[in-house]
Design a binder for these strands. Structure first.
Length: 419
DNA sequence: TCTGGGGTCCTAGGACCC
DNA sequence: TCTGGGGTCCTAGGACCC
């Protein structure tokens, strides 16, 4: 390929990331069994009602086991299925190794999720280098040096690169250039990025079955049907995407934590305790990153899977455990019908890095005292661990004083849904 | 022992202002 | 006291991603 004026974007996706990484780690630890070669999944703990498939091996895929489905169903499909718990520290380690290797080529890397990156390789291509050969080299190096495989999508924008990756898996380089749109137009419309389970039936209803059908449809009709989201996916179906490779992560818009409790909770004291533990976790995350929030929202899912949420904008910006908890308590009270609760979540948003205290004359709270208290507790927790200091109400309970996070420490990279 | 947890963005409707 | 209309802010809920 000759000198190009347009840029080349790679989308790199670790194949069955959690499962592969766990398999590689176990081999390194001396295990003789390669989880990738048998029907296996990484999954949560069903006793804690977190028993879903997080990642599956290719042999497990042959049994039609799907990511997100319950382990109960997965075991019905394959009774010999091997289930291993997630180790998020391990996943983070391999994700970092991937990015470290890519730094040999360019630093224009966007970490889209723990197992996906976008790379702008335009500058990494010398004038006689074919992007496909470069992708193959990267793939081979990852396999040889890190022990797992990736698929790489090659195109000129992020959307097409991402769509390319899924064309063949695992361990392939796929291109999807503007003159190759047929490759994705053949696919059912739900394979299009951002065309999910609610949008697909709406499109099917007006006769749109494939990505090509959408691409060739009347944009104004799609826009009328799906508003701005319609315009977005119509553009995507036509390969149109002008988003940049974002090399630095923008400041978080919100921070939240939630938990599915191992049993349904009907008792207010117990629910309040869980809420407090969640508030402890979220507010410490805010403080650790020197952030303050101005909006607090509480979300519950009842045991019938009906969800409710309530939010309130505060007059102040805060990261104080006590202030956030007192708001969260009021919000929980406002939505709780008494139906037993399965899941509770708290979320803080409207985040800034400096706080302006706008005192309300009816507000008698001693902000300095709250701050000193949080700081003292944080110092203890940073030194001796999160569970070493605890509010009195947790002492003889079954709950840890901080709840949240998917890993042990909860320090785990997450992702966006937009390019 | 069927259905996790962490994010972002969008929309609709009501309150309130001029 | 027969009713407009544009703008902003706030809240609840929904949709999508991995």
């Amino acid at each position: 390929m000759s000198v190009n004026l347009k840029g080349y974007i790679f989308h790199i996706d670790a194949n069955s990331a959690y499962l592969s990484w766990e398999a590689v780690e176990r081999l390194k630890e001396g295990s003789k069994l390669d989880l990738r070669k048998i029907p296996s999944v990484v999954g949560g703990d069903p006793k804690k009602r977190k028993g879903i498939v997080l990642a599956k091996s290719y042999p497990a895929k042959k049994y039609k086991i799907q990511t997100g489905e319950s382990l109960y169903i997965a075991l019905q499909k394959c009774p010999d299925l091997v289930i291993v718990p997630p180790r998020y520290e391990v996943f983070t380690k391999y994700s970092n190794q991937l990015v470290y290797l890519l730094n040999d080529y360019t630093n224009l890397i966007e970490r889209y999720s723990i197992d996906e990156v976008f790379v702008d390789v335009t500058g990494a291509l010398t004038k006689h280098t074919d992007p496909i050969l470069l992708a193959d080299e990267i793939r081979n190096r990852i396999e040889d040096e890190l022990g797992f495989t990736v698929s790489i999508g090659v195109s000129t924008n992020k959307l097409l690169a991402k769509m390319a990756t899924d064309l063949r898996k695992p361990n392939f380089t796929n291109t999807l250039f503007k003159d190759e749109l047929d490759k994705m137009w053949k696919l059912p419309v739900n394979k299009l990025f951002m065309c999910g389970s609610r949008t697909t039936p709406k499109l099917n209803k007006i006769g749109i079955e494939t990505i090509g059908d959408l691409a060739h449809s009347d944009k104004s009709i799609i826009k009328k049907l799906l508003k701005s989201h319609g315009e977005l996916i119509w553009n995507y179906a036509n390969g149109i995407d002008y988003s940049d490779v974002h090399t630095s992560r923008p400041m978080a818009k919100g921070m939240g934590n939630s938990t599915t409790i191992s049993h349904d909770v009907g008792d207010r004291i117990e629910a309040n305790m869980i809420l407090l533990a969640l508030c402890e976790f979220v507010s410490k995350r805010l403080r650790d990153s020197n952030c303050y929030c101005q909006l607090v929202s509480v979300h519950v899912k009842y045991n019938d899977f009906i969800s409710k949420s309530a939010q309130r904008k505060l007059y102040i910006q805060t990261n104080s455990t006590n202030i956030i908890y007192s708001e969260a308590l009021k919000l929980l009270d406002s939505i709780w019908t008494g139906t037993p609760i399965r899941q509770i979540g708290i979320r803080t948003s409207e985040i800034t890095t400096d706080s302006r205290y706008q005192y309300n004359m009816f507000d008698t709270r001693d902000y300095k005292k709250e701050k000193d208290l949080d700081n003292a507790i944080d110092r203890m927790r940073n030194k001796y661990g999160n569970n070493t200091i605890s509010r009195a109400c947790f002492v003889n309970s079954n709950y840890k004083p901080m709840i949240g996070g998917v890993g042990e420490d909860g320090d785990f990279m997450m992702m966006n849904s937009h390019l």
